[in-house]
Amino acid sequence: MKTAAPRMSGMERRDRRFALALLSPALIVTGLLILYPMYMVVMLSLREGKSMNFLESAGRPLGFGHYAAVLTDPATWASVTTTLIYTAGSMIPAFLGGFAFALLLNEKFPGRRWLRSLALLPWAVPGVLVSVLFLWLLDASYGIVNALLRDAGWIARDIAWFTDERTAMFAVILPTVWKSLPFFTLTILAALQAVPEELYEAARMDGADKVQRLRFVTWPAVRGAAVLAFVLNTLWAFREFDIIFATTGGGPYRATETLGIRAYLEAFSYFEIGRACVLGMVMLAIALLVVMAARRPLQKEFF
């Protein structure tokens, strides 16, 4: 709280009213389209019985029937595992690659600015487009990836990346890494550019080698931005829908059926709204765990 001692209380009251007036349009829309739907998901997860109709569901008795059914269903836990593998499998390489690329773009070399602009593209284009592109790159008959691997002699037969149970997870992770790597690069690069060159000079004078400079000069400077980017991207990957839905639809044999896909299918294909909402609550719980784990650095970054 700022100490605006000489200010009159009437003035402050006017201020507060003005501040609320500024806030209210956003609040009304948020309430209608975000908070109310969130509340409904919680409520519907607690309504017993199956019903296709949203309004009819709302009138049913309360209970934990859906929770019991969903949480004892092995398919749920299989989806949890799938989601975690997908999220970690795409975020860790994207983070490391994005970090490395940021370090490289921080160096001065010809074409750097050009490269930086171009690097943003994968992040900005629609997920559907990314899906179409990777389906083509990894196409079983005419895909360039199979052709290159064949030429290199690493595979004897073409791989049907998206429809083979064993490779489907890798196939959906690849476009996810491609799409999220630039965001890491952008945010970490911005933090890197705020580090004064003198700091490195001083560390060099003190006899710090490359690894030590990275650890004691670079990392502390970018840690905040890196953690924030990692958490935001993880939450994003955690509820990613477009890429998986458009490429495998969760298949083959549920190999890529993450919680987000599963919840969508329950709600809009099987009309099991109660079950879908419980799955949503499971997702929320896991997401909150992630946020709690990163609470301290997040707090430092956000406020």
Binding site: P37, M38, V41, L55, A267, F268, L279, L284
Partner: peptide, 17 residues
Amino acid sequence: SAQVFPFGLLLISIYPV
């Protein structure tokens, strides 16, 4: 906090809204 909520599920009640 709305950011951690799966957008797909919000549709269940955005649809009637």
